[in-house]
Amino acid sequence: MPARPGHRRLLLDAAAGVLLVSVVCTLFWWVFAHLDKGLEWGRVWNYRKLLTDGWLLTLAVSAGALPGSCLVAALLIAGSRSRLSSLRWFTRGFVEIMRGMPLLSLILIGYFVFFAQDSFRAFLNSMGLGSKLFAGIALLSVFTAAYLSEILRGGLDSIPQGQLDSARAVGFDRPQILRYVILPQALRRVLPALAGQFVTLVKDSSLLNIIGIQEFTYQSRAYNSATYGGIEAFLMLALGYLLITLPIAGFAHWMENRFRYQM
């Protein structure tokens, strides 16, 4: 019996999948087999506490900066839609400066200039927020918020005027229009870009090691120093970040399908 076209496609698909996986595996095996220094996973086990602590701190920084960046982004959007043109220009300028500047310089300037001010520090201390960790989360939030606000602004602007008319015609007031009509559609449209930005946020948190926050990258470097350069730490590093970023991407894909409304 000749295979039906559907079956043939399935077979071809499976064969291509096996081939791709084998090629990638072979490549990796070949690369790692020819390393000058071998991989010593026993050392990783010995330093497991250090690495786990770093990973947990990366998770904590990300978990803090994610809502933090959303909050700042909401403020930036409110500013960009203000009736006062001065406020709109200020927001515009702020967003462009944040987006035009390397995160590294923001972290250094932010931490060693702004967070180093005695009065500011005293103020934060009085609120129990004087830690280095808070400074890191705040700086990362502000930086990410500039990107988020632009993504969200694009989404809000993409909703056709007809939807606004329709929402007003059925009698919704302004908060209801935003909540029931604009936001659900805008968020669905920008979901892929939002997820990308959150993934970037997690990876960007690695730069906080330069102000001494002992997150995952910091601890991996500490491991390297202590063990005189174990390559396995870099593999752990990649794996550790993927453990956080892949679920974010997966969740975003699930949301996209769950809230799909255009056929």
């Binding site: 007809g162 939807q163 329709s166 929402a167 007003r168 007031d173 009509v181 559609q185 669905r188």
Partner: peptide
């Protein structure tokens, strides 16, 4: 707003809420 709530409006381009 009160006036819009008292009346019904239908548009040429339907303008249904596409996500509902």
């Amino acid at each position: 707003l009160a006036w819009r709530r008292r009346n019904g409006f239908l548009f040429q381009q339907f303008n249904l809420f596409p996500h509902l």
